[in-house]
Every structure is written in C-alpha cells, then in structure tokens.
C-alpha cells in the first residue's frame, strides 16, 4: 500500500499536528490548574477556636544563616556553600528514594572533625 504524499499535504499535516499537540496540552493545563485551585480551596481553613487559645510565646530569634536556593526558603546553611547543599539534598533524596519536592531540609551544618 503506497501512500505517497505531496509536500503541501505533508506541511499541512505537520503544522496541524504540532498545533493539535499544543491545543491538547493547553486544555490539559487548564484542567490541571483548575484541579489545583479546587484542591487548594478544599484545604482546611485555620480553626476558628484558635483565637480563644492562649497565645503561644514566640520562639527565641535564631541567627539567620544564608538561605539556600532550591529549598522552601527556610533552609539555613552553616558553613556549607550553596553548591554543596544542593548536592547533599540530591544525594539524600536519591538514597531515601523520595522525590526532592517531598523532602524539607531545615538546616545543613558542616561538622568539623577534631
């Protein structure tokens, strides 16, 4: 069965195919964004009686270290360069077989052997 095409038809099919992929993906983005919105709306709001509770004393301020990139923003680095921190996080995620975005690192401190 020979289905030789002329170049014009091929060009139309190619453009149409690429457009369909984009259209399908665009609709999918819409659906996923919608899903995200609905899910975030369903998250339980902070409990109302909380106001009645005794106020919890604020924790003592901790000297802030430099914030590492690629984390939730609250990762404190003590004597650890950014690059090493990124590497450590990747290794921990790999060893634990847990995706990096499911892990939260609080701080990374270099321990010097004496």
């Amino acid at each position: 069965m020979d289905l030789k095409m002329n170049l014009g038809d091929a060009a139309i099919d190619a453009v149409m195919g690429y457009a369909i992929v984009f259209l399908g993906i665009a609709l999918l983005v819409l659906v996923v964004v919608l899903m995200g919105r609905i899910m975030s709306r369903k998250k339980p709001a902070p409990a109302a009686p909380a106001a009645e509770r005794q106020p919890v004393p604020a924790p003592a301020p901790v000297p802030a270290g430099p914030t590492a990139p690629g984390t939730a923003g609250d990762l404190k680095l003590y004597g650890t360069p950014d690059r090493d921190a990124a590497m450590i996080m990747a290794i921990v995620a790999d060893e634990l077989k847990i995706p990096l975005n499911e892990l939260r690192f609080i701080s990374i401190r270099e321990v010097n052997k004496k």
Binding site: G17, Y18, V32
Partner: peptide
C-alpha cells in the same frame, strides 16, 4: 506542559 508540547517540534519537522 507547554515546554513538553514545544519539544515535539522535531517530530513534525522530521516527518516533513
């Protein structure tokens, strides 16, 4: 998602 769609360019270029 759009980057995943954009990277299908080669499919249709090679098809042509």
């Amino acid at each position: 998602f759009f980057l995943g769609a954009a990277a299908q360019f080669g499919v249709f270029f090679a098809f042509f």
